[in-house]
Amino acid sequence: MSDNYLLMDAISYVDDTYLKKYFDMKEMLASKKKKRVGMIRRSASIAACLCLVVSMLFTALYFRKHQQSSVVKPLKDTIWASPEEDDNIEDYFEFSQTGTIIITASLEVAMERVKDEDSTLFAVLLTETGGKETSYIYDSFVKKLNAKEDYMETGIVFLTKNQIKSLECPGDLAVILSLAEKIDE
């Protein structure tokens, strides 16, 4: 009998108690493993759901932004300032006071070029010199104009000549209107 066979035989005499313990532990380990795998699968599902939600959120935000920008940035029939017509708004700051709207020279000149009833839009840059919050200006003034605008992003409001002429300034705002320079896409 070789030593291999001797050991093989000797180990055959391992007590049933240890074998039973082995089988019990094996079953317990298998059940633990099953639980672990289940947990990993659940975590993976949750992670996948989160990824889906986040990607959907980003897609929704992208489309929303895209939609908004297509509305507020009309490309046709809009008058923009040319670089040489650009005003230095700071020159108007000393004349600006609450409850009044100042129209800069470049905008004045552009308005003179079109008829009163013309539907051509002017890209107007709205500057408030009183130091009010942008959101406050938007709520108390811009929103009420019902005009196409991108005020929160660029400060630009699209108005016709008639709309500009009929503007009424809220008592607590000091506003300067100038012709905006075209934004390159």
Partner: peptide, 23 residues
């Protein structure tokens, strides 16, 4: 392993008993 190599059934049983003690 050692130099001697016992090959009897009795030794296998004895070894088994000692293995059980050790276990």
């Amino acid at each position: 392993r050692s130099n001697t190599s016992p090959e009897t059934e009795y030794l296998a049983k004895e070894l088994g008993r000692h293995i059980n003690d050790y276990l």
